[in-house]
Every structure is written in structure tokens, then in C-alpha cells.
Design a protein around this nucleic acid. Structure first.
Lengths: 191, 191
DNA sequence: GTCTATAGCTAGATAGAC
DNA sequence: GTCTATCTAGCTATAGAC
């Protein structure tokens, strides 16, 4: 993928936005073409295997964006656990556009897309849980409790996205994200 | 819709299963026809406006099933709050097939389906929250806390469904559902 | 109420000029 | 790398016989 009018990164971000808005099945080539400003032929030039390629690239791109916005702050070993979690919360708000942008973990596990991508999605979920649990453990939470809370955190994030979408309101998402650090680091629940 | 080989209820249940498996966009008429055993023409006989009609009927049917399996136990005023919540948990496990069946609250809020159904979905979410909050309040939880916990309960259910689907494992859903009564009725958090 | 047949369209994908 | 033109297959929906 050499030089182009649109940088590849910009193309991927626009494709990602379209897939997040319409889901895998709903993201037709016409819509993807419109979202990127590229014609069908250009899209096939970048992604020879068509829509499936685009979705795979978008999933990878979402992973990279998530890594830099959400996971990297968690790995900042110079900061204490609570501050890392606070930065993660900020990153989550940005990554999910204050609860208005869907998560591919949800969308790409549905229907035919699930057959293609569910394994990759499962790995991502587990990696996020493990990292969150490590931060909680470092914050003084027992290992088992930390892992359970980390899973609860992902559940809360995903569920809040569903509720915010269903209610057309950012409030559930905002509340969940703001409460995350406390829920992960609260004392009690010794194990 | 007079007499038929398949009772209407059976047709609706099979359509619901198909929509829950494939999502709105992924549920093609070919699949809906195969799922019900009815030909295209029969489907159009029952649902003159085609797929949109079917989805609307399925959403109503899901509401009725949810009412009888999940909400009705919550309204059983002869039983104490904790027991009602336990029955609800059992109903949730059945309604969501132990976490393996998706929720239309999630699926029908995506893409074009969202334009058609999001309002109805939002009302359902709010009604469920209010009922759950009333039960928690009856169980001695302060009104504000009860409402917040009720919202958290829905978030947990939806999020657990997303994780169970992404991880191809019933465990997150099972754990969340089994913990629901305690989370709603736990002491503390006075308001 | 179910059938066959088909209209009319959009889907994803490809070919070849430039 | 982008364009126009086009292919085939699938889609939703309809018509009309039975």
C-alpha cells in the first residue's frame, strides 16, 4: 500500500467508523466507499479480498487504537495503579466516543462475522482482563478477586455500551467508566 | 392469522431464534424461511410488510416471553424480594439459553434496525430497570441506590452476554446471573 | 394458506482502460 | 491508484395459480 491521497491510517479509521456504525452485515461496499471517499476499485486495490479483508484490517486497527488509548496507560509502570486506571478511563471515553461508538467485540461476534472473527475477539477480551487484573493486583487486590473484578469491568463496559445505545444516552457509559477505578481497587473481598 | 400447520406462536419463536442468531441484517428471508419451514409467500401472508413486520413481531414476542419468564416472577407479591430475584435469575438463564442466545436489545439497536426499533428498546430497558428497582427497594434498599443497582444489573446482564458470546463460554453469564440477587439486595450504600 | 415464477434491486466482486 | 462498466448471486418483495 504505497502513497495515496488518503493515508492508509485515515482510510482504516474511516472504515472502522463505518463498521462500528452499521455492523458487519450492514456495512455494504457502497457505504464503505462513501465513508472513505474511495471507489470500489480503490478499496479492492487496498484490500484484495474485499469486505472480509477490510473487516480484518479494521479489527487490527481497532486493536492498535485500543492499545494506545486504553492499554498503554495501564502499562505505564511509573504511575501508581489508581492513576493508571484513571488514565484508562479517559482513554475508554475517547475510544468509545463517550459511549456513542459501538465496540467491535460486540458487533463482530454476531452472525457470519462471528465465524470469521470470534476467536480473535476472545483473545482480545482475555488479554484485556489479564492486564486489568495485574493492575488491580498491583494495587493490593488479591489475585482471584482481581481477576474477577477485571472480568466484571469488561462486562460493565460492554453492558454500558449496550444500554447507552439502547437508551440513546451517554449516562450509563459515563457512570460505569467513572466508577471503574474504584470498583477495581476498592478494599474488601479478601481472598 | 387463522389456523395453520404451525401455530403462530411456534412461527414467532422460530423467527426469534433466527433473528437472535443472525442479527437483523443477517437474517435474510431465505434463512427466515428455512428456520420456520414456511415458504416466502407464507411468510408474506403472515407478515404483509415483510422482514420489518417479522422483526417487529419478533420484538413483541420476545417482550412477551421476557415478561412471563423474567418479569412475572418479579411481580409475584406473595414471595419475598430475595426469592423473586432468585426466580428471575432462573428465568434469565432460560430466556438467554444459559448465555448462548443473544438479546434483541443489543442486536436490534445496531445499524438500520436501530432506526426502526431503538425507541421500543429504550422503553423496555427503562421498564425493566424500574421493576427491578422496586423489588430492591422493597427489599430494604434505599430508592436511589436501588435504581442505580437495577441499572447496574441490566448492564451486567448485557455485558455478560457480550462476553459469553465473545469468549464462547457460558461462564461470565452464569456468574453474573447467579450473583444478581446478592448484588441487588446487599446491605450498605445507604442513601 | 401455500405454491411457482419472477420482478427489480443491491450485494460483493472483477475486468480492463487510463 | 482510480475510473467505468459489468458479472453473478443474493436480496426483498410481488403476482397469480391452486
Amino acid at each position: 500500500m504505497p502513497s495515496s491521497a488518503l493515508p492508509k491510517q485515515e482510510v482504516l479509521d474511516r472504515l472502522m467508523a463505518a463498521f462500528r456504525q452499521f455492523g458487519y452485515d450492514g456495512a455494504s461496499l457502497a457505504r464503505l466507499s462513501k465513508a472513505t471517499g474511495l471507489g470500489r476499485s480503490s478499496l479492492y486495490h487496498y484490500f484484495p479480498n474485499g469486505k472480509e479483508d477490510m473487516a480484518a484490517a479494521v479489527l487490527a486497527n481497532a486493536g492498535a487504537r485500543f492499545e494506545e488509548m486504553v492499554l498503554a496507560p495501564l502499562r505505564a509502570e511509573d504511575a501508581p495503579p489508581r492513576e493508571r486506571l484513571a488514565r484508562m478511563a479517559t482513554g475508554l471515553g475517547a475510544f468509545y466516543a463517550d459511549g456513542s461508538a459501538a465496540c467491535l467485540t460486540d458487533l463482530f461476534a454476531i452472525g457470519d462475522a462471528g465465524t470469521l472473527f470470534r476467536q480473535r475477539i476472545g483473545s482480545r477480551i482475555q488479554a484485556f482482563i489479564e492486564l486489568l487484573a495485574a493492575v488491580a493486583a498491583e494495587g493490593g487486590i488479591g489475585r482471584e478477586t482481581a481477576e474477577q473484578r477485571a472480568e466484571d469491568a469488561l462486562i460493565a463496559i460492554q453492558g454500558a455500551l449496550v444500554l447507552s445505545r439502547g437508551l440513546t444516552s451517554p449516562e450509563p457509559f459515563r457512570r460505569v467508566v467513572s466508577e471503574l477505578p474504584d470498583r477495581l481497587l476498592a478494599p474488601g473481598d479478601a481472598d
